[in-house]
C-alpha cells in the first residue's frame, strides 16, 4: 500500500465489520499506524508524558534512570522550564546484567539533593522498560533513597511496553503523583477534579455547577503551586474523575485515604452531557436548595451550549 487511504465513519458502518477494508486491517501490512502512535506523546509536542507528568508535585525533582538513548529527548522539556528539575543516572549493560544500578540510585539521589540549594519536596525516580524485565522492586529502592536523603521518594514507571495493557504508564504515573497525600480531616464542601496534568479551563461549566451544588472549594493537582496546596488535596470529600486514566489513582486514594470518587464519562452530545450532570446531582448528598440550584444551572448551561453550537453550525453553513 503506497497511496493514502481514507474512509468516512458512515461508509465504514455501511460496509459492516466483515467487509472492513484491507487498508484498515493492521496485521496485513508491514508498516501500519498502531493505536500507540495516536497516543504517542512526544516531548517535542509539549504534551504530558510520564516524565513531565511525574513532576506534577510542586517542588519535586526527577531522577531519570535509563540508558542514555531513553533520556535524550527529555532535553526537549527544558524549553518548558524543567531544566532545573531533571537529573540523569545513565545505565550501561553491566549495570543491567548485575543489578548494580540499584545501589547507585540512592547515591545518585543523595548527590542530586546535595547539589541543590533547596530541599526538594519529593524525588521521583523514573525508570524505563529495561528495568521492567529485571523486575526491580522500586518501592524498596525508593525507601533506601528516603533513608539516604530524608526526602520522600516515589517511583514512576516509563514502561512503554505496558502502554496497551490494563494499567498503562500514564495511569501508573497518576497514582505516583498522588501517592504522597496523607489522611487528614475531610471537608464536606471540598472536592478535587482528577484527570489531567493541566487544569480545566477557567470558564468550564463544571466549576459553576459544583459551586452551585454547594461545593466551596474545587481543587486540582495542576493548580497546586506549593507542596502545602498539594497536601490540601486530601481534604476533599470526594474526587471527580474526568479522565479514565485517573481512575486507578482515584481507587488508590479511596483505599488509602477513604476519599470516594465519581467518574464522569467524556461525552459529546449535549443531551447526554446534561443527563450525566443531572445524574451526578442526584448523587450529591446536599440540601435540596443547593441541589435544585445546581439543576437549574445545569439547564442554563445546556441552553447556552446549544445556542453556541447553533452559532457554530450557522457560521460553518452546515
Amino acid at each position: 500500500m503506497t497511496d493514502a487511504f481514507y474512509i468516512t465513519a458512515a461508509e465504514l458502518a455501511d460496509r459492516g465489520f466483515d467487509n472492513t477494508p484491507d487498508e484498515l486491517m493492521s496485521h496485513r501490512h508491514m508498516i501500519y499506524s498502531s493505536p500507540a502512535t495516536l497516543d504517542f506523546n512526544s516531548p517535542g509536542a509539549k504534551g504530558f508524558g510520564v516524565k513531565r507528568a511525574g513532576l506534577a508535585i510542586p517542588g519535586s525533582v526527577m531522577l531519570l534512570v535509563a540508558p542514555g538513548c531513553c533520556g535524550r529527548n527529555t532535553a526537549l522539556l527544558n524549553e518548558l522550564g524543567y531544566n532545573e528539575r531533571f537529573f540523569y543516572l545513565l545505565l550501561d549493560d553491566t549495570d543491567i546484567v548485575t543489578g548494580r544500578h540499584l545501589t547507585k540510585i540512592p547515591k545518585a539521589c543523595k548527590e542530586v539533593c546535595d547539589s541543590l540549594d533547596y530541599t526538594p519536596t519529593a524525588v521521583m525516580i523514573c525508570i524505563t522498560c529495561v528495568d521492567a524485565l529485571l523486575g526491580t522492586d522500586m518501592e524498596r529502592v525508593c525507601r533506601k533513597c528516603e533513608d539516604e536523603t530524608g526526602v520522600p521518594t516515589v517511583p514512576a514507571y516509563m514502561y512503554a511496553l505496558t502502554r496497551e495493557k490494563r494499567l498503562p504508564p500514564m495511569a501508573g504515573v497518576r497514582k505516583s503523583v498522588y501517592s504522597l497525600l496523607e489522611p487528614q480531616k475531610r471537608i464536606s464542601s471540598e472536592c478535587n477534579i482528577m484527570g489531567y496534568f493541566s487544569h480545566v479551563h477557567d470558564d468550564c461549566e463544571l466549576y459553576d455547577l459544583l459551586h452551585s451544588a454547594g461545593i466551596k472549594k474545587v481543587r486540582e493537582l495542576a493548580r497546586c503551586e506549593t507542596i502545602e496546596q498539594y497536601h490540601e488535596l486530601s481534604r476533599a470529600n470526594f474526587n471527580l474523575v474526568i479522565n479514565p486514566e485517573a481512575r486507578y489513582a482515584a481507587q488508590d486514594l479511596e483505599k488509602r485515604l477513604g476519599i470516594p470518587f465519581i467518574e464522569l464519562t467524556r461525552m459529546y452530545r449535549i443531551d447526554k452531557i446534561h443527563n450525566q450532570y443531572r445524574l451526578l446531582g442526584r448523587h450529591w448528598v446536599l440540601c435540596s436548595t443547593t441541589a435544585s440550584t445546581a439543576a437549574r444551572r445545569s439547564g442554563q448551561w445546556r441552553t447556552s451550549t446549544e445556542n453556541s453550537v447553533r452559532c457554530v453550525l450557522r457560521w460553518a453553513n452546515v
Binding site: 543489578g99 529485571l134 523486575g135 526491580t136 522492586d137 518501592e139 524498596r140
Partner: peptide
C-alpha cells in the same frame, strides 16, 4: 535468580 523470581517474597 533475578528480580522476577524474587517477586513472591516481596511485600
Amino acid at each position: 535468580v533475578c528480580g522476577g523470581f524474587a517477586a513472591p517474597i516481596r511485600e
